[in-house]
Nucleic acid binder design. Sequence first.
DNA 1: GATGAATGAGGATTCATTCAT
DNA 2: AATGAATGAATCCTCATTCAT
Lengths: 221, 221, 221, 221
Amino acid sequence: MAESSVPTLWSGAPDSTSVNRQQRRRGRKLSDMMSYTAQVISENGYHMASLDEIAERMDLSKASIYHYFDGKEALVTATLESCASYVQQRLQEAAASDGTPTERLAQLIRTQVNLIAVEAVEVARLFVQPLDWPPAIAETVLQAQRDHGKIFRDVIHEGVVAGEFQVADERIARMALQGGMNLVPTWYSDKLGGKRGAVVVEDITSTLMRLVLPITSPIQA
Amino acid sequence: MAESSVPTLWSGAPDSTSVNRQQRRRGRKLSDMMSYTAQVISENGYHMASLDEIAERMDLSKASIYHYFDGKEALVTATLESCASYVQQRLQEAAASDGTPTERLAQLIRTQVNLIAVEAVEVARLFVQPLDWPPAIAETVLQAQRDHGKIFRDVIHEGVVAGEFQVADERIARMALQGGMNLVPTWYSDKLGGKRGAVVVEDITSTLMRLVLPITSPIQA
Amino acid sequence: MAESSVPTLWSGAPDSTSVNRQQRRRGRKLSDMMSYTAQVISENGYHMASLDEIAERMDLSKASIYHYFDGKEALVTATLESCASYVQQRLQEAAASDGTPTERLAQLIRTQVNLIAVEAVEVARLFVQPLDWPPAIAETVLQAQRDHGKIFRDVIHEGVVAGEFQVADERIARMALQGGMNLVPTWYSDKLGGKRGAVVVEDITSTLMRLVLPITSPIQA
Amino acid sequence: MAESSVPTLWSGAPDSTSVNRQQRRRGRKLSDMMSYTAQVISENGYHMASLDEIAERMDLSKASIYHYFDGKEALVTATLESCASYVQQRLQEAAASDGTPTERLAQLIRTQVNLIAVEAVEVARLFVQPLDWPPAIAETVLQAQRDHGKIFRDVIHEGVVAGEFQVADERIARMALQGGMNLVPTWYSDKLGGKRGAVVVEDITSTLMRLVLPITSPIQA
DNA sequence: GATGAATGAGGATTCATTCAT
DNA sequence: AATGAATGAATCCTCATTCAT
């Protein structure tokens, strides 16, 4: 009802470059709709989220969705792309920071854990595993995961080249890292909120950094 | 591939204690049906797997499924429980072997990676993430995951008590370990089949063992 | 017969208080749907009336029924309640008329016989016996019968108190009365239509009034 | 399980003339099966009584029913005919007794009320109203009702001819009588069991006799 | 005589999508 | 822009019936 209290999961300001008010209003509407969609899908999964339910959450009629999106798949695809884009942006900021590969990888892990477990829990859940998506959407998810992986891959590679990391196989290390990041915070999400959360995040980070740091030296997160 | 021979994913010999031929035949039938079910669900997910499709794969009429199971949910629940039970048994064997916690954890990882990526790829995929299951089934999956986690938890704890492992937080370490195991082999499954597969499995194992081994000593998988 | 004109069995004007046109249109649609439902159920019984058949009679797709009612049971329950409510209203009018209990009971009988055998044959058939309804609906039927019985009970009781009626047991008398009313006109419906019908109705009424009138005085219907 | 404790509703000894033991055994089996069928149908109605349920009550497999009857309809038809035949026989005995038409009609009512409400409650419920039976079976029910009605019709007619009864219309009187008999005991069945039951039966009988007795004389039940 | 297995026909229900207003 | 109405397609499930053993 109160459009103002839309829980913008990833605070997307998608079309801030829109010129006139019309377009800006429409952009905000689209953003809100995707936000609600992410919410519902995240709670119930794709197949158990009916358009009726999504529409109701939007306080809009089901038919009206078709004024903005071509259908359920289009709505969800757009939502996923928007989510992925936001996450991607956040991670890229972390990866682009100054510092050694070690510092930057640790920062990446912190950022990702925070996103998954604190800032955008629902969003993250959408990308964890490509199980049960309709084929067309699965492709979108896969692409997002590839983009997402690339950021980590690059930093890890830099670290290896720089001699800071020591891994048997870069790809295996990266996937173990990602697998760990995906699973840990999901089950820890209740403990990551308050002040003590910061400590836990550091525990997670240092634990996962073990996967790449040379095993004979102490971990420097 | 060979539709005629039942692809017993987890080579379940469920009711070998059945006395008469009737019961044994029925037990085998049930086992076959669950095997096909695991296959189809694993490929398409719960919601996109229609009973029609499952029935056809079983070379049986849809109505016939109801002679053996109470409905779709019951069929899938039974299948999941059977799969979980088999995996559980395999892991328990690995965990119960002689050897130091280090050796046993490494053995656990090897076993799990093999199951996930070589022996029972389809089975494993069923348990990775509880995203889109109907509530009743989600509970089953969750329970299986708890049982599964307990085996790792125990060995890790023993290792810590024995002074062989050194972790900031046992639970975080365990989850990172499980997350890594779940993710890595799924994407590596094509490379884990042949002889070189053994090498990769060892790479994965040694990589993941880093998560618990004391960081100042070289890894001994 | 004339599919185009809705055969409003009980001329229900259910929501005449609806304010805007939207609501009035919807109310009329609901009323029509219930009317057709009463017809089909009355002809075939609950279990042999498929939603397909009902929908076709409504000249509507089966799925469309679900826009107005939650399902078959809801549709039928609503229909029964609407029917019962109409009958109840008609009887209450008859019971509330001026006159001695004798006159009012006779009027009740006439009204009921007319409803059952002339005006709302199909409607009446729905309430005669709760034999084959699904439990949830059986409850509705039972409630309607209780309401229905109360009207007769009250008038009979007044008659007894006033000394006009003389019965061994009020409840037995009332049930005999209702049983007679329910059965007689159903088999006489072909003879109750024309002018001679009025005579038959009076025969029925005077016959049934015997059940309560003092046996030493002539019946005065 | 205990075949001996079959609740033979109408104590049918259908084929007592069977010569050899084989046939007698088969006859008893058929009788038992029909008895259970009457029970289940009476409880749930025709459509909600699945063959599975009936078979289970018989402690027999569903398929076995087909060794004795051609199908569900045949089973139910046979059951209904057997029930009707038993009731018919009982009523005929009552109608054939010595005595005036008044006495015999009263005896008929007593017998019928007893059957409906005490001796064969389930059986009676099957015949009350032809609602919801499949067409083929409805015909059987109708025929039974016609046979049933004939007994009452004859006695009433004799009473009228003899000058004992005084009715406006014989048929109307008879139907009112039957309607009353059908309805009253169903709701009174809990009160008709013990000693006080006899009193109630007399109340019912005297109440219903009013429908035919001359209105200026006291009722003599 | 008895039964487990198998099935076709049919029914209720859901849902994404279209369209007139 | 917004929506109520309508629907075809798909899905789960039931059940009377047949048949091989």
